[in-house]
Design a protein around this nucleic acid. Structure first.
Lengths: 150, 150
DNA sequence: TCAATAAATGATAATGATTCTTAATATTTA
DNA sequence: TAAATATTAAGAATCATTATCATTTATTGA
């Protein structure tokens, strides 16, 4: 995606255009999958302090430009909201520490929605989200090759 | 569950019988749902340092006497493995910060297994676990009433 | 375009959950 | 019961994340 488009993303949400924000967006845009804050810093062409990345991510999250969730080892993972067709799930590889987006087909997803409705009704709760995550190992090339996505 | 039974649980797994271990087990046994480490300390009749609870929980986890997972705010949650019929899922309440165990019916769970098989095959991964979590609010009595379970 | 104003950043300190270290204590085993 | 072994308590250390605040940068309106 061109820098101009990234700029437009920010402008549309009323966020001012700054170099840390553009760079974080560019890094996320170039990645195939979700990235940790550390990943983002590593991949950025300019140097950005971790604290700034956390703040930028929080702002982008408020604006719903990115989505966040946690890895099995409880680190913050970030991805462009737009890069996925809305709701989806994640597949974690224990050995190479990558995360993959997965989409369930509509039938399955609808079934899950029904299950959620049953469960939440029986508990008298209003549900705002759900997650479905799969943990495995790819067994390619040993353990802990490298963190990062693509 | 009687103290004698808790003792037996430890003995069966070859763990020595200590007062922190028995107390952590007793607290978990009396709770309706999963507890955080802090919850456990609060509810224990004897005083146990946090670090000891973490270590005890790690030992009990190795012995598969307890199971652990993470809350949305990334805290460690613990429950007796025995208290649930094996695999199950969780429902989190944002307002009162409780966690409930939920069981999906066999048909649904089997369906999920199939989905997982498809996904893992297509990514060439060996799957060792999955999670399915629901997030909601019970809207009873305002927000952040109290952490804890029963 | 340029100064005034508001917002964002960088550097670093603070925090909170969890883990580690080590001397002291409790449990097990012979 | 005593020696050998495992566990604990206390607090320091660590890691990810958040907060603080002085400085810099972006925006806006003349």
């Amino acid at each position: 995606m061109a820098k101009k488009q990234l700029t437009e993303l920010l402008r549309q949400e009323g966020l001012s255009i700054t170099s840390p924000r553009l760079n974080v967006l560019a890094v996320l845009d170039e990645s195939e999958g979700p990235l940790s804050v550390e990943n983002i810093v590593e991949r950025s062409t300019i140097q950005i302090p971790l604290s700034t990345v956390y703040r930028v991510v929080a702002d982008l999250l408020d604006a719903r430009i990115v989505s966040t969730f946690s890895s099995p080892d409880k680190k913050l993972l970030v991805e462009l909201t737009r890069s996925t067709s809305g709701h989806h799930h994640h597949l974690y590889c224990q050995s190479c520490e990558k995360v993959f987006d997965i989409d369930l087909d509509t039938k399955i997803e609808r079934l899950i929605e029904n299950v959620i409705k049953d469960v939440s009704d029986s508990h008298g709760m209003r549900v705002y989200d759900h997650s479905f995550e799969i943990y495995g190992t790819c067994d390619r090339g040993g353990h802990h090759l490298k963190s990062g996505q693509d």
